[in-house]
Amino acid sequence: MIELISQHPIFAALIAMVGLSILFGGLLGYAAEKFKVEGDPIVEQIDELLPQTQCGQCGFPGCRPYAQSIADGDAINKCPPGGQATINALANLLGVPAPELDQEHGQESEVKTVAYIREDECIGCTKCIQACPVDAILGAAKLMHTVIADECTGCDLCVEPCPVDCIDMLPVEETIADWKWSTPAKPGQMIATDRRGELGSNTVQEDAA
């Protein structure tokens, strides 16, 4: 045996190669099991990034089903409440280029809104209560309803079913408590003060850009 190997180096090489591949295969297999990273399934991760307004503007009954659909390969730009920020986050997670928001599903709104029921007009039909995906409307049949503003996601699913049209989507007003500083203009970008008395035509270009 030894003789055979020493006389035919091809066998030695073969044995070495096979041995090495078995060894490393085993090692890698062991490592894969031992150091397995328990990650959230992708659907969970996508669902984490969606804004959870449950508004259905994407065409799915809630955020979770849309997350499932994205995981199955659906487009990531169907969520107007999340807007570009959510699209970017999803693109980042999935490692794909970030598309623009699909306008078919609605437009990104600048301000957050909450539903408000004009209570003296409410007839107590409970239709909005049934429509609310997060049970944020309080009331009973033939009794006045009201929105729990803190729970409202601003999905506006309750507006349409209201037979007397007494639900408004009001913008959330900024208070001193949640006021925050704005980001300053980027350095190196033109600011009014460094345009003083110089370059006529370039200023116009800068403004147009």
Binding site: P51, Q52, R64, P133, V134, T153, D178, W181, P184
Partner: peptide, 28 residues
């Protein structure tokens, strides 16, 4: 300051959205 504000806001929104998810799932 603005970054801190944004992070705090994102954090609050996360709490809100988690809460909304919980309520939605309960609703379902």
């Amino acid at each position: 300051r603005s970054a801190k504000g944004e992070i705090r806001q994102a954090h609050d929104e996360k709490i809100r959205s988690d809460h909304a998810r919980e309520r939605f799932e309960f609703h379902k």
